[in-house]
């Protein structure tokens, strides 16, 4: 079944009836065989969720492949393109689940224990903080306040502080992953230009941060 060329995959998947069904069966086998390699960093194969996830993602992948068949440009092997689609589906689901689980843990923590340290951190505190470091942090906070928009600050908090996956942060901000990346790129550019205007660069700022 691996002998199909890109052209024969496309032709078979565009032929209704037994030809398409056979191609879909072969593709299902290929996706199901490949996915465990991609998921093993995320989920143990012994996890009871592993096999159902592989099957669910494989089925969803086939639907998306049929839906997006006309967008395949033939610049990679067809099966690599299909694996790419499967990975996007699987990792989006795993990130969402992992974040939901950690949010639940955090809620339980808040009911029974103090909030996580990272959310309670007092940026001004820390007897070990040197004057140089404290001064630079104050300066950078002022620059962030002056340069970043409210949306850019919100994105930083969601991604960097609350540790949301891009898709979840984008959903909360009523945007999409691509637009969120552009928003953060614009934030980084504004910050970089402002540092340059103040005769600073990232290395100098980081050096000051490291002086404790």
């Amino acid at each position: 079944m691996n002998a199909r060329t890109n052209e024969s995959w496309l032709e078979d998947l565009r032929t209704p009836g037994p030809v398409r069904d056979a191609a879909l069966d072969d593709l299902h086998a290929i996706v199901s065989k490949g996915l465990p390699y991609a998921l093993s960093r995320w989920l143990s194969p012994d996890d009871p969720l592993f096999t159902p996830l592989v099957e669910e993602v494989s089925q969803e992948t086939l639907l998306r492949v049929l839906d997006q068949l006309d967008t395949f440009e033939g610049r990679s092997m067809f099966t690599t393109w299909v694996h790419k689609i499967a990975i996007r589906i699987a990792l989006t689901e795993l990130r969402r689940k992992r974040w939901q689980d950690s949010s639940l843990d955090e809620l339980v923590d808040n009911e029974e224990n103090p909030a996580p340290e990272r959310l309670m951190a007092d940026p001004q505190a820390g007897p070990e903080t040197s004057t140089e470091r404290a001064d630079m942090l104050t300066r950078i906070r002022r620059i962030l306040d002056e340069e970043l928009t409210e949306k850019q600050r919100q994105a930083l908090v969601l991604l960097g502080l609350q540790d949301l996956p891009m898709e979840e942060a984008a959903r909360i901000m009523k945007t999409n992953r691509n637009a969120l990346y552009k928003l953060l790129h614009d934030a980084r550019l504004r910050l970089k230009r402002r540092l340059a205007a103040e005769d600073l660069n990232a290395q100098e700022v980081l050096s000051a941060f490291e002086s404790r």
Binding site: R118, A121, R141, L144, L161, A202, L206
Partner: peptide, 16 residues
Amino acid sequence: TDRLPDELIENLIRSL
């Protein structure tokens, strides 16, 4: 922005 932890600001600067 005052609530952003130092570590997050450092990571942001590093990304520059």
